[in-house]
Structures are given as structure tokens and as C-alpha cells.
């Protein structure tokens, strides 16, 4: 039966209250050794999301809040982040979710425990192929030869960078428990999220640095983001119904 209050759910974690500070909201609703982190929510909060300007508006603000709660728990306990906008129909619903999704959630939590997510992106801005060599003092043939050499050099540089980015991706996979490719906008050759065991982060980052020097010499940059809670590695669906 619903208690009538809406709860915004952030993450599933271990039911270990001793690891968490005493205070007000958000709070943990526990079932066996799992807990779901929730806070009371006024539905109107979500109405304020400006779909025309999601980056600077309420969505970004709410997403940061969501992330802050997940991170606060993640500092001391493993987390299974729930998608933003997961609103539960009261405490009974939160309990039913944990009961129905118990095995799935616990397995996933065990998998990500002791790991953090890191994003690695390789960006390569090529010189414009349309830039023409200075034609002054050149014959037509010389000009065409110059231009062809220039295009070949751009092509070679591109191949070098693509090869190097591929080797980086391959090398990092060996230091990670899992990896997920992310959308690659224009100019981005590689954009991958890695799930890295905390004990292997040093070697992971040493590898990134080594390749960053190689790629830098070839005119590309390597960007790292993180540590993130394992957002990209908790791709599961937890179903719970009244009879679940």
C-alpha cells in the first residue's frame, strides 16, 4: 500500500548505516544487506526542467544534485546508480523494489564494488585540407606537387593518430574490468568509459600518460574525466510489481 509520499531514488547500495553520517535527507531504506538511497521529492521540481535549455537550466542542476548524492554514498560504499528521475511511490514501493530486484542488484553491486569509472577521450583537430600552399614563384606543376604532399602529410598524420588511439584503447582495456564506447562527436577519435579496480588505477593512468605523450607528438590530445561512480556499467532493468 502506498504511503502517499513520493521518493526520489538515487542508488542502491549496501545496507550499512554505520558507514554513513547522521543527518536529515537523503536517507537509506534497507532490506537485508541492500539499501536504496531516497529523498522526499516534490513532483513540481521536475516540472521546472527547461527542455529548451537543458544544459544551463534546472536539468543540469538536478543532475548535479543526483550525482552529488550518488558520489557521497560512493565515497564509503559501492553504488548501483539509478537513472535520474526514478521516483518511487512511497516506502513500501522502495522495499518491494529491493525485494524483487535483490539478486540482480546484489550481483551488479558485487561486480562494481572496488572499482571506479574513468572516461578517456582522444581528440584530433586536423589542419584544414582546404588550405592551399603559397603559389608565389611556383609553376603550376610545382604547386600541384606541393598541394599533394601537403594532403598526404595530413593523411599520414591522421593514420598515425588513429593507430595510436587504437593501441591506447587496447592497452587500457587490459587494465580495466570492463569498457564501454561512448558517442564520438566530430574530431573525437576515441571516447571510452573504463571500469577500473582502484588498485589498478596507477597503472591505468601511467598507460594514459605514456600514450598522451605519443599522441601529443602526433598532434592529438588525450582528456581524462573521473573518477565517476560506475554509471556506465550498471545497465540493468529492475522490475517490481505489487505481487513481485
Amino acid at each position: 500500500m502506498s504511503t502517499g509520499n513520493w521518493l526520489c531514488a538515487y542508488a542502491i547500495t549496501r545496507n550499512r548505516p554505520s558507514a554513513l553520517d547522521i543527518g536529515s535527507a537523503p536517507r537509506l531504506i534497507g532490506y537485508r544487506d541492500l539499501g536504496v538511497v531516497v529523498s522526499e521529492v516534490a513532483p513540481a521540481r521536475f516540472d521546472r526542467i527547461d527542455t529548451l535549455d537543458p544544459v544551463d537550466g534546472t536539468l543540469a542542476e538536478l543532475a548535479r544534485e543526483h550525482d552529488a548524492v550518488v558520489r557521497a554514498v560512493f565515497r564509503s560504499e559501492p553504488v548501483l546508480p539509478l537513472r535520474f528521475g526514478t521516483v518511487l511511490d512511497g516506502e513500501d514501493a522502495a522495499l518491494r523494489l529491493l525485494q524483487a530486484g535483490y539478486d540482480q542488484a546484489r550481483d551488479c553491486l558485487d561486480e562494481v564494488a572496488g572499482h571506479r569509472e574513468w572516461g578517456v577521450r582522444v581528440r584530433h583537430t586536423e589542419p584544414a585540407a582546404t588550405t592551399r600552399p603559397d603559389a608565389a614563384g611556383l609553376t603550376g606543376t610545382q604547386y600541384l606537387v606541393r598541394r599533394r604532399e601537403r594532403l598526404k602529410a595530413i593523411q599520414r598524420a591522421r593514420e598515425d593518430v588513429v593507430g595510436s588511439a587504437g593501441r591506447l584503447e587496447e592497452a587500457l582495456r587490459r587494465h580495466a574490468a570492463d569498457s564501454v564506447s561512448r558517442a564520438r562527436p566530430h574530431g573525437v577519435l576515441m571516447n571510452t568509459a573504463y571500469l577500473v579496480e582502484t588498485g589498478r588505477e596507477a597503472e591505468f593512468h601511467a598507460e594514459v600518460e605514456w600514450f598522451a605523450r605519443e599522441l601529443s607528438a602526433a598532434g592529438a590530445t588525450v582528456e581524462t574525466s573521473g573518477p565517476w561512480p560506475p554509471y556506465s556499467f550498471t545497465d540493468l532493468e529492475l522490475g517490481a510489481t505489487a505481487n513481485g
Partner: peptide, 26 residues
């Protein structure tokens, strides 16, 4: 951040969930 928080993470389905009209549009 948005790509991780809004597009990733475990999805909860079933009658425990309140559907927020705005979210899918977002």
C-alpha cells in the same frame, strides 16, 4: 555528466515507479 546521470544507470520498471510526464520528453 548528463549523459551518465540521465542516460545511464539502472532502470526501474513496474508499479513501484511514478511516471513523470516530463522525463521522457527530456
Amino acid at each position: 555528466l548528463l549523459d551518465r546521470v540521465v542516460h545511464r544507470g539502472a532502470v526501474v520498471t513496474g508499479d513501484v515507479i511514478i511516471s513523470l510526464a516530463g522525463i521522457d520528453l527530456v
